[in-house]
């Protein structure tokens, strides 16, 4: 395989490639992210940003207590976030565990949401601690059940102990399983990688291995999608595009709960990767509670007074 002509798939070439990446200065990256967080978004721009953010939400439920009923309600919400206002766009995807994929797909089809993809978390999510055979089977199952997007986790243990090639080969293998049927999002679990240098390295590793998206977190580990982490990942996809002319998507997930948080993410995208990434095909936000806050802000903007949670649906 060619891997964009940048590495040849060997341990040595991968190591050499990742070694020559420039370092990230944590304080500088944090300062840049903090500065962008001071951008003030008002009026028409805010209205546009809210709708864009809604369309980027991967509406997620990943709980041991998930039931078909819960997932069906989520699907309904994903398709018609505000039942009283049809101008609200549907979200980017519904994100569920493997065994809920079929239920979600069937329900979405039943309510006419054929376009709305189902994303499945995969490869022994969230820890990634399973045999390769299990991880492959996990992914196959999800795709067979109708998942159009696979959110796999990387083996952070292997990454942290320097077995980069194992992480790489796993992603390559899962990508093969995805084939043309599913988009692959690679979850780096940046809260466990800890340093921004690791985030940059892991981002490149995932992109070289064939990821369509790089994703920050499982949502099960804190910190999750912090602004500096997203900044570094956006820089990575921007620079990777310069090298390959291929645009890789970014998905922050975990901890993005308010409209303010979401708009800050969009500012990061706009000023780092650029406006081309301001599109659900290249930027998603993994969230659950966020959607209702976006809806309430949307109501405030159209009605001119503050909204109440009583007027948005809770599922």
């Amino acid at each position: 395989m060619s891997f964009y002509g940048l590495v040849d798939g060997s341990d040595a070439s991968l190591r050499n490639y990742l070694k020559q990446l420039p370092g990230v200065d944590q304080v500088g990256a944090e300062a840049r992210a903090a500065m962008l967080a001071t951008r003030s978004i008002k009026t028409t721009s805010k209205a546009w940003a809210i709708d864009t953010a809604i369309a980027m939400v991967d509406l997620t439920t990943l709980e041991g207590a998930d039931t078909p009923g819960k997932v069906q309600a989520l699907c309904a919400k994903a398709f018609r976030p505000d039942p009283t206002d049809s101008s609200v766009p549907h979200v980017g995807a519904v994100c569920v565990y493997n065994d809920m994929v079929g239920i979600a797909r069937q329900h979405l089809d039943a309510i006419g949401a054929h376009e709305l993809p189902v994303a499945a978390v995969s490869t022994a999510f969230p820890s990634g601690r399973a045999s390769m055979a299990v991880k492959l089977q996990d992914t196959k199952d999800a795709i067979d059940a109708g998942a159009a997007e696979i959110d796999m986790v990387i083996d952070r243990g292997a990454f942290l102990s320097g077995r980069l090639i194992e992480v790489f080969q796993e992603i390559v293998a899962i990508r093969e399983v995805c084939g043309d049927q599913a988009h692959l999002k690679v979850i780096l679990e940046t809260g466990e990688l800890v340093t921004l240098d690791n985030v940059r390295k892991a981002s490149y590793l995932a992109m070289l291995a064939g990821a369509h998206f790089i994703k920050t977190s499982t949502g099960k580990v804190a910190p999750a999608a912090t602004a500096p982490v997203v900044l570094v990942m956006l820089e990575a996809v921007r620079d990777f595009y310069d090298l390959t002319k291929v645009r890789i998507g970014v998905k922050p997930a975990g901890g993005i709960r308010t409209t303010k948080d979401a708009i800050k993410q969009l500012v990061l995208v706009n000023e780092t990767a650029g406006p081309e990434w301001l599109n659900p095909s290249l930027f998603r936000i993994g969230a659950s509670a966020l959607l209702n806050d976006l809806l309430m802000q949307r109501m405030k903007m159209s009605d001119g007074y503050y909204a109440s949670p009583n007027y948005v649906t809770i599922d």
């Binding site: 951008r39 003030s40 978004i41 008002k42 009026t43 028409t44 721009s45 805010k46 546009w48 940003a49 864009t52 969009l266 500012v267 706009n270 406006p275 301001l278 599109n279």
Partner: peptide, 9 residues
């Protein structure tokens, strides 16, 4: 699509 920030004086 361009993200034009509205004036925030």
């Amino acid at each position: 699509m361009n993200f034009e920030y509205a004036a925030a004086p």
